[in-house]
Design a protein around this nucleic acid. Sequence first.
DNA 1: GAAATATACCTTGACAGACGAAGTATAATG
DNA 2: CATTATACTTCGTCTGTCAAGGTATATTTC
Lengths: 111, 111
Amino acid sequence: MSIASDIIRGHTDAIILARLAAGNSYGYEINKAIERKTGGRYELKEATLYTAFRRLEECGCITSYWGDETTGARRRYYAITDAGKRTLKALRKEWEEARQMIDSLTTTEGY
Amino acid sequence: MSIASDIIRGHTDAIILARLAAGNSYGYEINKAIERKTGGRYELKEATLYTAFRRLEECGCITSYWGDETTGARRRYYAITDAGKRTLKALRKEWEEARQMIDSLTTTEGY
DNA sequence: GAAATATACCTTGACAGACGAAGTATAATG
DNA sequence: CATTATACTTCGTCTGTCAAGGTATATTTC
């Protein structure tokens, strides 16, 4: 990973929710999708990913169910809930505000 | 504070370095400057601020000296070093890359 | 057909940054 | 003279991330 994790920190939930808003999926695939979308510049660590799933399920933002694969390893699928969609929207709005702030605060201009 | 601290996390150093790149200053003033610049939407907590000063001095990004105030409380001033300027530049570049990534990853489009 | 790799999930313990809370001290203000 | 503003510091806690380990099945390679 080329990007410091402390910069991404706090966005894990939004990243996962955004992926699930595009359709149900499972851990391994979600991780690969993120890696693909960033051109390999970023990937969630497995422990981080599964910790986030627990957290998001806990707060009612996602639900999960076992897939009915007849071959290969079992997969636990995740689906975003209405609450999850609202949370995503709020997180995205918060991000847009924070982005402007950080942009401003990390330049010398304006002091 | 209206912005979740986990979103700002990891930017504390860059924020302080950017302020110091505009001129030497001391803790209390730096904090007020940040508050002012964000229109009161954000302020570093004191513990966070002073922890960051120690960290930045430790890594040679800043130096400090006691001001010679003849009145009022003593002030510890901080100055950015050349290494600090280079670090700021690198952090800013990293931020620009991360910003694009987060922008992309927190929207549904492209999956 | 054995070994290596890819797919897929999970847990534990440690770490680092942010922060709440508390403390110290001086100056200005009402 | 009590309150508020200025100014710095330390301690303990919380939370998200991650390294390292584990389990299991399917496919590819030699």
